[in-house]
Amino acid sequence: MLEAGTLNRRVRIERRDQTQDDLGQPVDTWVEVATAWCNVRMLTGKETLAADADVASATASIRIRYRTDITNVMRAVVDGVIFNILAPLPDLASREYTDLACSAFANNG
């Protein structure tokens, strides 16, 4: 059973959308799809050298209540930190939760 007390953060799920600016040029924006309570577990972290600059990256698991409408082209934002959703992993057996396997700090979605 997924206890409410373990879901101690708010996550905003966003999808990429394309709009037009004043000149009619396409502009990528992020649109909120849902907001939910979650639990964030940082799994690993590393720092690498890319293009002569230090780049930090991390993998995380964000657990939310069961949903099936989240895809890997979306992103999650928790406390201002942007997480790229690599794979949504719904608990198909008990339908209690969905784990979002994510990466963070490498880019902004």
Rank of each mutant, 00 (worst) to 15 (best):
M1C: 06
A4K: 15
L7R: 01
V11W: 05
I13Y: 04
R16N: 00
Q20L: 08
Q20E: 03
D22S: 10
G24D: 02
Q25G: 01
Q25Y: 12
Q25W: 02
P26F: 12
P26I: 07
P26V: 04
D28M: 00
D28K: 02
T29D: 05
W30T: 06
E32I: 11
A34Q: 08
A34P: 01
T35Y: 02
W37R: 15
C38R: 06
C38Q: 01
N39K: 15
M42F: 09
K46H: 10
E47G: 05
T48F: 08
L49D: 06
L49W: 03
A50T: 13
A51T: 09
A51S: 13
A53V: 13
V55I: 13
V55E: 09
S57E: 14
T59L: 05
A60W: 07
A60H: 06
S61G: 11
S61W: 06
S61M: 14
R63I: 07
R67P: 03
R67V: 11
I70K: 08
T71H: 07
V73P: 01
R75F: 05
V77Q: 06
V77P: 07
V78C: 01
G80S: 09
F83R: 08
F83D: 13
L86G: 15
P88Y: 00
D91Y: 13
D91I: 10
A93F: 06
S94C: 05
R95D: 00
E96M: 12
E96A: 03
T98L: 04
T98C: 05
D99W: 11
A104C: 13
F105E: 10
